[in-house]
């Protein structure tokens, strides 16, 4: 703290920024408290294990087995990541390290536009174009593969843009040192650039996964919406988010409370994700003080 009195403007700015931060943080807490409050009714009435062990999802008959839908959310998210992560990281690498400046600028603009497309548009495209393609006309293509592809398209820009930003923050000296040692572009990317940018890349992946877990509308239109364990690429499934969207409009009392339990599960999943990411993405981006201080 400076020994001099801080000018009024600086103090005012501190206050404004502190209030904004407090407001944002309190919103998260309030939402969590609200969701938990609404879910408490069902948790008390049914007990937590009912949601894990009930045979099927028949809310009007008192059966609340959430596991198949949780598995469906997991499956579609993983499927999307498997497709989008390599493509996204590759696109980021291309833009940051290989592409000439004008090409990189244009490519980045395209990716940013892709990021801005509303999810329901992806859903519509998926239903009208992708699903018949996957089904081949004979059977319905609504299912795991369609949902994963649509999700992958939505999270691809996030991964690409954050990978590119993270790579740009890698100090030039590291890359020059790698070049001086005779490393070609592939080895440099694999051994120097990506490890140095690890934190940013993982942050991008966490953001993308969070979005994939929470995506509702597009998945609802192409996933088939049958409550069942993920059985195959073309078999239908229903995600937790899709279920909430389908049933919230008319659910009363206990049913509504059960849907909030599903919402709680989703929030906890994302929280777990963030914790895992901070554990594994631990190494800070290398500073320019000549040393990859790799503390695991």
């Amino acid at each position: 703290m400076s020994p001099y009195a801080r000018p009024k403007r600086d103090r005012a700015l501190s206050v404004v920024l502190l209030s904004s931060a407090a407001l944002a943080a309190s919103l998260i807490v309030l939402i969590l408290v609200f969701v938990f409050g609404e879910a408490r009714g069902a948790l008390r009435a049914e007990g937590f294990t009912a949601f894990l062990t009930d045979a099927g999802w028949h809310p009007t008959d008192g059966e609340f087995g959430l596991l198949p839908m949780a598995a469906a959310t997991l499956a579609t998210t993983l499927g999307a990541l498997v497709m989008a992560a390599p493509l996204g990281i590759g696109a980021g690498l291309f833009n940051a390290l290989i592409a000439p400046r004008p090409v990189a600028r244009f490519h980045r603009a395209l990716v940013e536009v892709l990021a801005g497309i509303p999810s329901v548009v992806f859903g519509l495209w998926g239903l009208v174009v992708l699903v018949p393609l996957i089904g081949g006309g004979e059977r319905s293509g609504q299912g795991l593969l369609a949902a994963s592809v649509v999700l992958a398209l939505m999270i691809l820009p996030t991964i690409a843009l954050s990978t590119e930003a993270a790579l740009e923050r890698v100090p030039r000296e590291l890359l020059q040192g790698a070049a001086a040692l005779g490393l070609g572009p592939v080895a440099c990317a694999r051994r120097v650039a990506l490890p140095a940018a690890r934190r940013g890349v993982i942050a991008g992946l966490v953001l993308a996964t969070g979005r994939a877990i929470g995506e509702t509308m597009a998945v609802l239109m192409v996933a088939g919406n049958v409550v069942a364990w993920p059985a195959g690429l073309r078999e239908p499934l229903r995600t937790l988010t899709g279920n909430i969207a389908l049933e919230m409009g008319y659910a009363t009392q206990e049913h509504r409370s059960v849907l909030f339990v599903a919402g709680l599960v989703l929030m906890l999943a994302v929280a777990l994700l963030v914790v895992l990411a901070s554990l594994f993405g631990g190494a800070p981006t290398a500073t320019s003080h000549g040393g990859g201080a790799s503390s695991a």
């Binding site: 099927g56 028949h58 009007t60 008959d61 239903l127 009208v128 699903v131 018949p132 089904g135 006309g137 004979e138 059977r139 319905s140 293509g141 609504q142 609802l220 239109m221 088939g224 919406n225 049958v226 239908p236 229903r238 389908l246």
Partner: peptide, 25 residues
Amino acid sequence: SRDVHADVIAGENEQAIKTIAGTTS
């Protein structure tokens, strides 16, 4: 409702119609 074994569950009428128009069987 629990007797029905469905391959696709549609929400709106139009979603059902589009699904059937895209699948011959």
